[in-house]
Nucleic acid binder design. Structure first.
Lengths: 248, 248
DNA sequence: AAACGCGATTGATCTGCGTCAAGGCGGGGT
DNA sequence: ACCCCGCCTTGACGCAGATCAATCGCGTTT
């Protein structure tokens, strides 16, 4: 099951994407004023860790620009990325103490943060905010489950194509162009990060990217800039049916 | 990150586990009376499909007894289980139209259902219900992400051990015995269903179960009844640290 | 410009798991 | 009692992807 991200640009509604993506579909209500009071911005450099798993995390936040990853680790060092945070994505666990995963900035990153306590209080007083968060969490759950299919059943080539399709779609959505036909975007992940997301090794990722290039599914400009001449072709390679969009 | 299921038995609070697990931590409030009016029970036989992916699903529900699975399929027939519904688990997507996945009963199954429309109305009027659902959805999200690590990075043997540990823990929780030391339980899944959950083939599952038996990690009575002489040993085999419980 | 470092690519080889195939076991129907 | 049918087990073999290792490209430092 595939979901489309809303076709709303951050600036439609002020400078903070949390206004519509995370919290409030009605941008002229009083809650936003309350939010303004507890809002602050934080910047991170590429490679910086935002929070470590199980550390206290006393804020919830929305990604303004840049990319971050949620990663789990086993004691022996094996790691699995469990989430990719792109601009307008929300992160945080209202009602929970610690962070569940390492959050790491993979590019320079700006987040719009809200202090958690007052945010939770606001949530209690304004039912539609809790409901909005529930909807968002259901979206995340769908995305996680979609990814379980990728991890459990797809081949390396299909995994790469799936990841490219997701990033391409999100990028198109942010720039408000239709996710179809020809697309171009910058891949905000190293080969190693891609491998971590896909349950592969970085060598396999590299080989399969080369293979997709050789077969004309994508072309590369430099290491990171991807051109997708035919989006449907990419979806086919990903093993998806092409009747919908996929969320994060 | 591992989570413990609440140590509350369904019967503490009436015959319907939704009362505390899904909806209401305060069992004496008015909302329960409203719930009674829209509540009904449904039974399914082992193998029956509860709903197909993308079908309308006009109820939310809680599992009273038996086991069901949430499964995704690719067009070519590959399938991946994305969720396992055990007694007291909640299923449903308030605010959403269709089911996201096939829901199939793997044993005889009884569900406590609530008509969705009135349930959603009740949710809107009673903020703490929406918040409870948010917490539950966050739990599910954690479980899904935990499973992403299993699917992406664990070996076949570790996958089997992880699955056994989850079922053992849930079973212990339902029977209100501590999940430690020696445990025994019935595995409510066929080898094929296990394979579907773990991203393996049924042959590999069979081989690894045999290997765990040979190595004394578990003993079998019949095909399905599992005895775990040392739960910590099992966790070790699963590659988990043993400092917490894992949810579903 | 030379030296360095980091990410990416590519090759050679190994191996865990998938695939294909042949029984085994146990319960239910005739 | 017999057979049948679902479910499970076990073996032989092949392959996709992991592992180990060498090299490249390119931006940054000295």
């Amino acid at each position: 099951m595939l979901l489309d991200t809303p076709k709303i640009a951050p600036q439609d509604c002020g400078d903070c994407p949390i206004r519509h993506r995370a919290v409030c579909a009605r941008c002229d209500t009083d809650e936003l004023l309350k939010l303004e009071e507890i809002k602050y911005y934080r910047s991170f450099e590429a490679g910086q860790t935002v929070v470590w798993a199980d550390d206290r995390m006393d804020f919830v936040a929305s990604v303004v620009s840049g990319v971050a990853t949620l990663t789990q680790a086993m004691e022996d060092g094996r790691t699995q990325m469990v989430g990719l945070l792109l601009p307008s994505d929300f992160v945080g666990r209202p009602g929970r103490q610690g962070a569940a995963y390492d959050i790491v900035a993979t590019t320079d990153l700006v987040m719009c943060c809200f202090r958690k306590k007052p945010f939770e209080q606001m949530m209690e007083q304004t039912p539609h905010v809790a409901q909005r968060l529930l909807q968002m969490t259901l979206d995340e759950l769908d995305a996680a489950r979609e990814w379980m299919l990728v991890l459990g059943r797809k081949t390396a080539r299909e995994k790469i194509a799936s990841l490219l399709a997701i990033v391409a779609r999100r990028d198109a959505s942010l720039n408000m162009v239709p996710a179809a036909g020809s697309l171009a975007f910058d891949l905000p992940l190293t080969r190693e990060a891609m491998a971590d997301y896909l349950g592969l090794t970085l060598e396999t990722v590299s080989r399969q990217v080369s293979a997709l290039k050789r077969d004309g599914v994508i072309t590369l400009q430099g290491k990171r800039h991807i051109v997708v001449p035919d989006f449907d072709r990419l979806l086919e390679e990903a093993g998806d049916d092409n009747d919908g969009g996929m969320l994060s």
